[in-house]
Design a binder for these strands. Structure first.
Length: 879
RNA sequence: GCGGACAUGGCGGAAUUGGUAGACGCAAGGGACUUAAAAUCCCUCGGCCUUAGAGCUGUCCGGGUUCAAGUCCCGGUGUCCGCACCA
């Protein structure tokens, strides 16, 4: 069966070993054990079934697979599942374009992609597979929704929402990027709709402060989440107002700079502020102004260009006690209703935006503090004098000129705290913490999503579905002829009875945001067929996920939602922890060169022939011979045609080569450039290992690895030292996910084993050390190239599967060198090397150093001032 | 504007966290084997040099600390990323 030819044939061997693993059910995990210390959960972000696996997926899953196989060898009970994030717009788009049911399209894609993934030889427990569009899964999600409803974690409100006019659905704030829909790219409009919201903002403080404990997360992701949650500390207080409509006698404002209150020269309110709305009804000019504000788009460009617009309402504001007085109240387009109170005071002396506004509307500019050492005089300063606002950096000390006369110095932060105290002492206002994070709107006006399990009853209002009625299934017979939500116009699906009164009622036709589906799937994998969302007895032995791996693009949305969901599930008793992912790793993308012809059309790498190298490289279109330009290296994308399919690589070189190449060279968190020569190089290495093993197999038939206590010849000992050293460093590097370094160590090990010549004169102890060395080698690269490893393992005479073997036992003693080489510096410059026993004392090293010819020559009889010996590192002679 | 990260040969990147800079790989050049090609094996591969040496120089630029700096400190430059009318 195994081929004994000089070349390894992955096309033949890979499926054979995949079958062997399957037959032994090697990767099926028993989650019911009660020894949670030996459990290890490694998970890669599950894919959307778009149709084909792309190379980026492959890199992601290979990383997880290396960890899974390594941890399994280290004796852990490893859980490594796979599923499908299967609801979403593309299925509906396909339905509209090709007249195919979204479900059919999705499940066909899943079948294709599962086959593609299986070619990679991943150690996945496929018995746990599910798709989020399986009714069995979304039934449990509906169950969670009802629990959330009971625990007041979800609510309904009418609000202005982001409406994507192309996808014809609502988007969460997180899904609006530069004012455009994250999927469609269409400019988002504002609409008033009644929507379901998850109370994520109630958890702002916890979500923020717990980030500090996520030590195995990249600092970058934690920082992005910190910024997104957006903590700010300030003061909230009321202005009294005069001249306003009945019922309005004060304006509540929020500020992070209460220390500038004495420089306030106007008050501004949002066009959506209740007071603005009241004024709008009485005064057509206000109505016109507000309409003008709404017209301005929310895109970045629009905001950049937009002028600061203000409308003087004629109302005057003052702080009780007369500290500031007679401030004009403006409606201003730059004030957001959903941050703080929707109203501010303006201090043009110390804020750029307020300054712009003041200049435009000719308002007073007053400064409150100035840089230390400034000799400006203590007086009101008009716009022409204070051309720029003075905005000190946070820790900068400033000198206050109001209210105190004379020196009054403190840093910005001290001043803010001081001002909050000032407000509180006078009972004018209070310190308030604000967050940027808004509640998560989850209603989507789409078909292909999880139905929200509630009904609308004329008599009883909004009534939750009964848990025994779950799942509320999506109807199969749907019509995609018209845009919008097909559930809305389905002839019968909406009609139901009210669970409360039994009368006629209508189903909710909105479905849940697909980010809900991915917010708890990791928990479901532990007991994927349970009759409840989780099995509390089992789940806490497996969560949190020990190592989660995925793209940085999910740094905010998915990872923040999952953290919220875990907390919400804890409140509902489905599990008992707050943080779902203990270790997080964000992997880089696979990128490729781009090619473009004269007309600007992108070309597939397969259509291009390359010539020359370095700066004289040229590319030609194979079909026409026309020279085409070589563009930048970019993320693989269909639009730029610079994609390479995983099958293509598997067909040419086998899965192991692809796996090896994608983890070589580039550190896993950085992008890796796919190049043909790199892939060929990886394949050459596969064959090189095969030759090494194949060469030695005959000689090793009657030999076994040397036992620990046996003394070996120097040659044999060197091999044994290299084996144990390599074993250690590869293990450490895999633990750190430094796959590129592990791979370099494997290369070095192969280089050194290849230097051992096999001849008739090879002694038995060398052969014995080689026996151990080759076993170690195969086990070390097995997590990376599992098929080749099995083939080598079997050729080396083992009856077992290497995938089921424990990691070899490392011995510190055997890794110990008999002599080490110390670099010798004189005045910090390397001049010589010293070969010496590793346990030589510093005195012995000093003495040996001074005996070196080079050192003697340089010293020329002089006595060195100092000799620095760093054990096992370096010697430096100072003279 | 605010916040953050990074900068090492022709290229991707190592460097035990202050201790031999350039591991390992890719590309390139030379040689061996072969009728030839592929495959394989061996050698060279940061720069400089009328002194080819255990020589000088060299990790974005300019300073500093240290016996010793790619690594630490101060000041610049450049690139990339996140957020952004957030009061």
């Amino acid at each position: 069966m195994s081929n004994s030819s000089a070349r390894y044939n992955p096309q033949e061997a890979e499926p054979r070993w995949q079958r062997a693993w399957d037959e032994q059910k090697l990767f099926e995990t028993d989650t019911s054990n009660d020894d949670s210390n030996s459990n290890y959960y490694v998970l890669e972000m599950f894919p959307y079934p778009s149709g084909r696996i792309h190379i980026g997926h492959t890199r992601n899953y290979t990383m997880g697979d290396v960890v899974a196989r390594y941890k399994r060898a280290r004796g852990y009970n490893v859980l490594h599942p796979m599923g499908w994030d299967a609801f979403g717009m593309p299925a509906e788009n396909a339905a509209m374009q090709n007249n195919v049911h979204p479900g059919e399209w999705t499940y066909q894609n899943i079948d294709t992609m599962r086959e593609q993934l299986k070619l990679m030889g991943l150690s996945i427990d496929w018995t746990r597979e599910f798709a989020t569009c399986d009714p069995e899964y979304y039934a449990q999600q509906q169950h969670l929704f009802l629990d959330f409803l009971e625990n007041d974690l979800v609510y309904r409100k009418s609000s202005k929402v982001n409406w994507d006019p192309v996808d014809m659905t609502v988007l969460a704030n997180e899904q609006v990027i530069d004012g455009r829909g994250w999927r469609s790219g269409a400019e988002v409009e504002q609409r008033e709709l009644t929507q379901w919201f998850f109370r994520i903002s109630d958890f702002s403080e916890d979500l923020l402060s717990s980030l500090d404990e996520l030590e195995e997360w990249p600092e970058k992701v934690r920082l992005m989440q910190r910024n997104w949650i957006g903590h700010s500390r300030g003061a909230q207080f009321d202005f009294e107002i005069t001249g306003a409509p009945d019922g309005f006698d004060r304006i509540d404002v929020y500020t992070t700079r209460p220390d500038t209150i004495l420089g306030a020269t106007f008050v501004g309110i949002s066009p959506d502020h209740p007071l603005a709305k009241a004024l709008e009804e009485k005064d057509p000019r206000v109505k016109d102004f507000i309409a003008a504000c709404r017209k301005i788009g929310t895109t970045e460009e629009a905001i950049e260009k937009a002028d600061k617009l203000g409308f003087d309402t004629g109302i005057k504001a003052q702080l009780p006690g007369g500290f500031v007085d007679n401030l004009p109240v403006y409606i201003a387009n730059f004030i957001l209703m959903d941050y703080g109170t929707g109203a501010i005071f303006g201090c043009p002396g110390h804020d750029q935006r307020d300054h712009d506004f003041a200049v435009k509307y000719d308002l007073q500019i007053i400064d409150v503090f100035r840089p230390l050492g400034s000799d400006r005089d203590d007086s009101f300063i008009m716009p022409e004098i204070l051309k720029e606002p003075y905005v000190p950096i946070k820790d900068e000390k400033v000198e206050f000129i109001r209210p105190a006369r004379g020196p009054n110095q403190m840093t910005g932060q001290e001043a803010i705290n001081h001002a909050i105290d000032w407000f509180e002492e006078r009972e004018l206002g209070e310190g308030v913490t604000n967050y940027r994070l808004r509640d998560w709107g989850i209603s989507r006006q789409r078909y292909w999503g999880c139905p929200i399990p509630v009904v609308h009853c004329e008599k009883c209002g909004v009534v939750p579905a009964m848990k025994e009625d779950l799942p509320i299934r999506l109807p199969e017979d749907i019509d995609f002829e018209k845009p919008g939500n097909p559930l809305d116009r389905h002839p019968t699906w909406r009609q139901t009875t009210c669970p409360s009164c039994g009368g006629e009622a209508e189903r909710e036709t909105d479905t849940m945001d697909t980010f809900v589906d991915s917010s708890w799937y990791f928990a479901r994998f532990v007991t994927p067929r349970a009759n409840n969302p989780t099995e509390p007895a089992t789940i806490d032995r497996w969560l949190p996920v020990d190592q989660y791996i995925g793209g940085i693009e999910h740094a905010i949305l998915h990872l923040l939602y999952s953290r919220f969901f875990t907390r919400a599930m804890q409140i509902c008793g489905h599990l008992d922890l707050k943080e779902p992912f203990k270790g997080l790793f964000t992997q880089g993308m696979v990128v490729h060169e781009t090619y473009q012809d004269k007309a600007g059309n992108w070309l597939d790498p397969k259509e291009v022939r390359l010539e020359g190298h370095d700066s004289s490289r040229k590319a030609y279109k194979i079909e026409t011979g026309e020279e085409v330009s070589i563009g930048s290296i970019e993320k693989m994308s269909k639009s730029k045609k610079n994609t390479i399919g995983p099958e293509e690589i598997t067909r040419n070189f086998g899965a192991d080569t692809a796996r090896w190449f994608m983890l070589s060279d580039s550190p896993p968190d950085r992008d890796v450039e796919w190049t043909d020569s790199g892939a060929e190089g990886a394949h050459r290495f596969v064959q090189r290992i095969w030759r090494l093993v194949d060469t030695w197999k005959i000689r090793l038939i009657d030999v076994s690895a040397p036992s620990q206590d046996i003394k070996l010849s120097d040659d044999a000992n060197k091999i044994r030292q290299a084996s144990h050293k390599t074993l250690k460093s590869i293990g450490e590097d895999i633990e750190k996910l430094a796959f590129n370094r592990s791979i370099a160590r494997v290369h070095e090990f192969v280089n050194s084993l290849s230097n051992v010549s096999m001849s008739d004169r090879t002694t038995d102890d060398v052969a014995s050390a080689m026996c151990e060395g080759l076993d170690f080698l195969v086990q070390c690269f097995a997590p990376f190239m599992p098929h080749l490893a099995e083939e080598c393992w079997s050729v080396l005479g083992h009856k077992s599967l290497v995938a089921a073997e424990p990691w070899p036992i490392f011995s510190e003693n055997l890794a110990q060198d008999t002599a080490i080489i110390l670099p010798v510096q004189v005045n910090g410059k390397k001049r010589a090397e010293l070969s010496i026993s590793p346990d030589a004392s510093n005195d012995e090293i000093e003495a040996a150093t001074l005996e070196l010819d080079v050192v003697k020559k340089i010293l020329d009889g002089a006595v060195p001032r100092k000799i620095i010996v760093v054990p096992k590192r370096i010697v430096n002679v100072v003279c």
